[in-house]
Amino acid sequence: MEMHRALANGRGPTRRAALAGALASVAAGAAGRAAAYSGEGLEILAAPTGASISLARVVEAGGLAAAAPGATLRPWRDPDELRAGIVSGKTQLFSTPTHVPANLANRGLPIRLLCLLGAGHLYVVTADERVASFKDLAGKPVLGFFRKDMPDLVFRACAKMEGLDPDKDIQLSYVQSGMEAAQFLAAGKAATAILSEPPATAAIVMAARQDRILRRAISLQDVWSRHRHSHGVPMVGVAVRAGVFDQAPGLLAALRDGLPQAKDWALANPGEAGALAEKALQMRAPIFEKALPFMNLDIRSARAAKADLVDFYETIVAVSPDALAGRVPPDDFFLEL
Score class of each variant (00 low, 15 high):
Ala200Thr: 07
Ala253Leu: 05
Ala159Phe: 10
Arg156Gln: 13
Tyr174Pro: 05
Pro141Leu: 13
Thr91Asp: 07
His4Phe: 13
Lys90His: 08
Gly258Asn: 09
Glu60Ile: 01
Pro79Ile: 01
Ala30Gln: 05
Arg107Met: 14
Phe333Thr: 05
Val59His: 03
Gly258Leu: 11
Leu73Glu: 02
Arg5Asp: 12
Cys115Lys: 00
Thr315Ser: 15
Pro151Asn: 07
Pro110Gly: 08
Arg284Leu: 07
Tyr123Val: 03
Trp224Met: 09
Glu60Tyr: 01
Tyr37Ser: 09
Gly274Leu: 04
Ala28Met: 14
Ala18Ser: 12
Ala65Cys: 02
Ser95Trp: 11
Leu23Asn: 14
Gly120Ala: 09
Asp149Val: 10
Ala132His: 15
Arg33Lys: 15
Ala31His: 04
Ile213Phe: 05
Asp298Gly: 06
Ala208Gly: 10
Val223Pro: 06
Pro234Thr: 09
Pro330Asp: 13
Pro101Val: 09
His4Val: 14
Ile44Ala: 08
Val26Asn: 03
Leu113Val: 04
Ala67Glu: 04
Gly232Arg: 00
Arg107Asn: 13
Gly39Thr: 09
Glu180Val: 12
Gly271Asp: 14
Ser230Arg: 06
Asn9Gly: 15
Ala51Leu: 00
Gln176Gly: 07
Leu7Ala: 02
Leu19Gly: 00
Ala46Leu: 14
Ala182Phe: 03
Thr201Asp: 03
Pro270Val: 02
Val328Leu: 11
Gly39Tyr: 10
Phe94Leu: 10
Asn103Arg: 06
Ala275Cys: 10
Ser177Gly: 06
Ala18His: 12
Ala266Val: 07
Gly63Cys: 03
Gly63Met: 04
Asp152Tyr: 02
Glu162Asp: 01
Ala193Tyr: 11
Glu2Cys: 10
Gly89Ser: 04
Ala34Gln: 15
Leu19Thr: 08
Leu137Asn: 00
Gly89Asp: 12
Pro260Trp: 04
Leu117Met: 12
Ala61Tyr: 02
Ala280Ile: 01
Ile194Pro: 08
Ala127Asn: 08
Ala46Trp: 13
Asp308Ile: 06
Ile213Met: 11
His4Lys: 03
Gln176Lys: 12
Ala239Lys: 02
Phe134His: 01
Pro270Ala: 11
Gly232Ser: 07
Gly163Glu: 13
Arg83Ile: 00
Ala200His: 05
Phe334Asn: 13
His231Val: 08
Glu272Gly: 06
Gln210Tyr: 04
Thr192Lys: 06
His227Gln: 09
Gly12Phe: 07
Ile287Arg: 11
Ala67Met: 06
Ala217Asn: 03
Asn269Ala: 09
Leu172Phe: 06
Ser173Ala: 12
Gln261Gly: 12
Glu2Ala: 14
Gly10Ile: 04
